[in-house]
Every structure is written in structure tokens, then in C-alpha cells.
Design a protein around this nucleic acid. Sequence first.
DNA 1: AATTATGCTAACCATCGGTCAATATAATGA
DNA 2: TCATTATATTGACCGATGGTTAGCATAATT
Lengths: 203, 203
Amino acid sequence: MPLQLYDKEKILDACFDVFARYGYANASTNMLADAAGISKALIFHHFKNKKELYLNVLDRCIEKGRIEMGFDTLLENQNFFKAKEKFSTIKFHYYKNNPDLIRVMREAFYATPEELKTEIQDKYGALIANNEKEWKRLFEKVPLREDVDREQAFRLVTLTLDYFDNKYLLELENSDDSEEAYLQDFLKERNSFLSMIRFGIEK
Amino acid sequence: MPLQLYDKEKILDACFDVFARYGYANASTNMLADAAGISKALIFHHFKNKKELYLNVLDRCIEKGRIEMGFDTLLENQNFFKAKEKFSTIKFHYYKNNPDLIRVMREAFYATPEELKTEIQDKYGALIANNEKEWKRLFEKVPLREDVDREQAFRLVTLTLDYFDNKYLLELENSDDSEEAYLQDFLKERNSFLSMIRFGIEK
DNA sequence: AATTATGCTAACCATCGGTCAATATAATGA
DNA sequence: TCATTATATTGACCGATGGTTAGCATAATT
């Protein structure tokens, strides 16, 4: 068994697969080491603990996703609801080719393991806040009823859309017919959900 | 150190405190045994594993809460929104005197530990579904716009209200001024949130 | 060629949920 | 009353977990 000179990138690649398949909690350090073809001790030589290793994996996911999904050009859109819909569509399509990446990011941000909550908040809180600011900037142009608080309205809309996106992404994961038709269904239900908020549910 | 004859109730009382304070995952079986003043092996003599112990604790919480909060009389109310508001208010007040019970129930149903998800779904799925049916029955009487799907509207309303209730309950936990004024603030913000959904946000 | 820094691992550690074998107490029936 | 059966109780142990240590092997620097 020859010694190998590893750089962190190779380890991170292997661990990414394991975290995506088993989730943070169920990816044991022994599994991670085996997947990377190195000893467990070497994992802890390169990363101070499992959390830091995970956060490094997550970092690459975010960067890769940001570039490949065109996150930055997305916000150049002028219409809040159009931009949100485009974002959902992009995520949906991207998921078909990179399910692992979306899986990792969903676990990290929408089903955050208890033990990682403070770390993720500390590390990505500013990024999330900044992202939210951009969305809020777009939301400014949405005309609201006089009696509606803009901050509250923004929270309601994003809460609902996030919930809906993740629900469908989860269902897609457990279903086979990952067809274009599925996306159309998704968008249709999503938009009727959205228009409830925009125009009210009551007669 | 004399031997003692324990019945399960005494163990459950002690474990309830520990689960409330530390949460399911961070309440180790050693801690639980110490808190109950018995050996760890005895814990596993009375309960087949940590999950079953927890579910027994949870069972008592649900029963106690159901009785003391008057869950059953609540649904006799005829107006969906009034009933929901009353429910929030009751929970809020009850929390002041029994924060531990609310804490345990919130973790179990609104921040379910990954490892308990299937167990809780299996054990309480029917109860939750039945409860939802009762709420839906009340919701039937809410007049909706013709283009709005009732099922979707119900999901939107409950999603939002649950989110809001838990958010405030969490904030209350981390704040000192648990005054009546806080409840008024809560209800005010809650109702304006709700009226966004009822009447729409857009001009 | 000697020294320093890094790559790398086997063996170990405490803690975790959980088991086992043994003993002490209580309940039962003759 | 006394033997038998059932239950209460424990310390010592188990495999797996995340993580550490000590030491050797390789590479880089002087």
C-alpha cells in the first residue's frame, strides 16, 4: 500500500459524495476516510473536526452552484416574482444533473442538523443576509396595499416560496417521472399558491 | 445505597426534565439514568431503547397538555380564525407556567430530530391527521374567492400560523419580558400577517 | 547531507446507545 | 413456612462514534 500525497481537494471530492448520499449525521468519519482512501487520522490532520470538513465541502457546493446556476445574473432581473420563478426553474433543472449538490445544500440550509446550526449561522449568516437584501431590493418595486407592512409581506412570500420549492424538490427526489411535465405541474401549483398571497384568499 | 422499587412514572418524571432541558439528542442515557437516580441498565430494563423512553415521555406531555389546555373544547368554536387565535393565546399563556412541556412538544413536532421522524409519524400520524381534519372542518366555513383552491388555502394558512406561533414562542424563550404586553404584540403582528393572506398583499 | 516541515498511520481515548450475567428483592403457591 | 417464580437492580462489558497521540515516512529547505 503505497503512500500518497493528498491535497485537500481530493478528500473533499470523496466526502462530498458521502455527505450527499448519507447526510451529515450518518456519514461517519470512518466512512469518509474509507471513501477518500486514507486513514481517519489523516482526515483530522487536514481538518480540525468533522464540522470543519463538512463546512469545507459545503463551501465548494455553494461556489459551484453559484457559478453554474448563474446566481448573480439572476438578480439583474427587474421583477421580483419573475426572478423568483426563474430561480425555482433553474434550481429544478439543475437538480436533474446535479442532485447531489442540491441535496447537500438543502440539508445545510433547509434541514440544518441541530449540531451545525450555530456554525452555519456564523459562517453564512452574512451571506444569507446579503442575499436577502438583494431580494428585498427587488421586492421594493412590488406595489402593496396601503395597510400591508412591506417587511412582513416579504417574509410571508419568501417563507411560502421556500417551503414550496423544497417540498417539490423532495418529492422529485422520491419519484421517477422527472419529466418536464413535472416542472409544469410544479409551476402551476406554485403560482396559484403565490396568487393566493398576492390577491388574498377570502371573498 | 439502598435498593428502591421504581415504577416507570418516577423515571418518566425525571427524564421529562432532562429531555426538556437538553433536547432528545443531547440527553444521554447516562444523564437520564443519573437524573432518575438509577443505573443505566435499569432504564433499558423498563424501556427497550432511548426512543421508546422518549415516546413515553412525549405521550404524557400530549395527554397533560390536551387536558390542561382544553384542547377538546377549543374545536367547539365555530369560527376558524377565532379558534386559531384562541389556540395561540392558550399556548402562549400555558407556556409561562409550563415551559418545559411546550419545549418538549415543540421539539417533537416542529423540530423533529431526524432519527425520530419515522417513529413520531408512525405513532402520531393518525392523531395529527385527525386533528387536521377537525381544523379543516372549521375552515370549510371560511368564504373563499372562486379561483382559490380550498385545500391549498388551508395549507397556506396553517403553514403560516404554525411558523408564526413557533417563532414567537422561541423568542419568548430567549427574552425576559414575558409580560402581557408581549402577547399583545404577538397577536397584533400575527393578525396583520393573517390578514395579508386573507385579503392579499397587492394593490 | 542535515534539518525542518509535512504526509500519513496504528493504536489509543472517552462517550455514545445498548447488552449480559449475576444478584437482590418481592410475589406466589404448596 | 418455604421453595419457586417473577421482577428490580446493577457493574462490567460491547461495538461504533468523533477525536487524539506518538511516531515514522516522505518531501522541501538550507
